[in-house]
Design a binder for these strands. Structure first.
Lengths: 213, 213
DNA sequence: CGAAACGTTGACCGTTTTCAATTACAGTGG
DNA sequence: CCACTGTAATTGAAAACGGTCAACGTTTCG
């Protein structure tokens, strides 16, 4: 999320091919020889795996700024289809040059490892947020992850409507969660800034979080 | 998930310290100098980040077989607490030796990068599964991810009770989803094997999946 | 053989989804 | 400068779904 430009650093502009995709257009197909990894510059690209019986599963939806199919670096062929969900622009980082750099430049490969490690951390955190069952609490958790400073603040720099699916909620649920939290004094909104208030004494009875084990 | 032993490969036994944790015991604390990454051998360790205002968020819960705090490899200090949720056994992979290996052994650092890339892929897929709202459909998606062959089959090698939280459901919800799917003919169970049937014509009206955009 | 964990099912309740309608805005072209 | 238009933000109401609690059958394993 914050470590993306690293890829761009690795490859100058020689191995960088840009491509525009119409809605529904295929970027690559499961089984194609893995030739590049992609950076989504605009739009949205969905990865779909097809099973032998013809059914399919969604693996990921990469949005603007995200990188896609990194694992293809280490595979012979793509293991899924990539389809543009909306008109999209992508930049292809050719696998060959990339691997060449990684093989020669020790620092570069460490940087890539670090980048991945960061993504793993990020993704785990998101997954953990989704373990929280009620919308308001989930939203607070998300806000805490995004927040900085004391008191913790978050600058909301994109529409809630876009944040909602990331939280695994509908936008309506998010709005309601916001107003609940605001009413309870858990957050304060000023324009696009949300400030988290100190945790109050449990008004709901203790912890009603992740599935019991 | 499948790429874990790699860590063990990197470090012989010199940098490998084992440690037992009582329930609630702290493995490390946010702010401590990052000294090692850990492999959970038994039990469950939770990572918690504390904010400046005293509140906290769960970042991850590492279970037996999983590795933990890998990002600490590239950081000065831990960015969260690690607490044993249950009595647990962990193996510490000292950061120093690990980094030394990675800095000298090109192949090793690439292997680590590959490992992380695989985890990223995995985690994204799990996240995608959680975007599915209804229990039966979510379960099918998960089964499809785990399935191999044609028709797609999955060997269930651990109790559903353990799988449920991974799906973000209670075990009761999972059981009900199973019986719904079985009743609808979407899956067939034989002992611990689940076989996915071909997708039937929509008995429910088309796609009621991830939050609409 | 018995205890503990797993599997299963029912009922009830709370929350979120859905569907729908309305308001608030920001950007655009007249 | 303003009507026009599309998106974002809200809010309401009803229905659907999963969580929770509870009871009970079943399997596993010491």
């Amino acid at each position: 999320m914050e470590t993306l430009q690293s890829w761009a650093d690795l490859i100058p502009d020689e191995g960088l091919r840009r491509r525009s995709l119409a809605k529904g257009e295929l970027l690559f197909r499961q089984g194609d020889p893995a030739a590049a990894i992609y950076l989504v510059e605009s739009g949205r690209v969905r990865l779909v795996r097809h099973l032998e019986d013809g059914s399919s599963v969604a693996l990921h939806t990469a949005r603007a700024g995200e990188t896609l199919a990194e694992a293809a670096l280490f595979a012979e062929a793509y293991h899924c289809d990539a389809v543009a969900e909306t008109p999209s622009g992508v930049a292809a980082l050719a696998k060959g040059p990339l691997l060449r750099v990684l093989a020669n430049d020790q620092a570069a490969s460490l940087r890539v490892a670090r980048m991945f490690a960061g993504q793993v951390r990020d993704l785990r955190a998101r997954l953990e947020v989704r373990n929280i069952r009620t919308a308001p609490e989930r939203l607070v958790a998300w806000l805490r992850l995004e927040a900085t400073g004391n008191p913790p603040r978050v600058e909301i720099d994109r529409p809630w409507i876009e944040i909602a699916p990331e939280l695994g909620l509908t936008h309506e649920a998010v709005y309601r969660a916001i107003s609940t939290l605001e009413r309870d004094g858990a957050i304060v909104r000023a324009g696009r800034t949300v400030t988290l208030a100190k945790a109050r004494a449990a008004p709901l009875g203790p912890e009603r979080n992740s599935p019991r084990t």
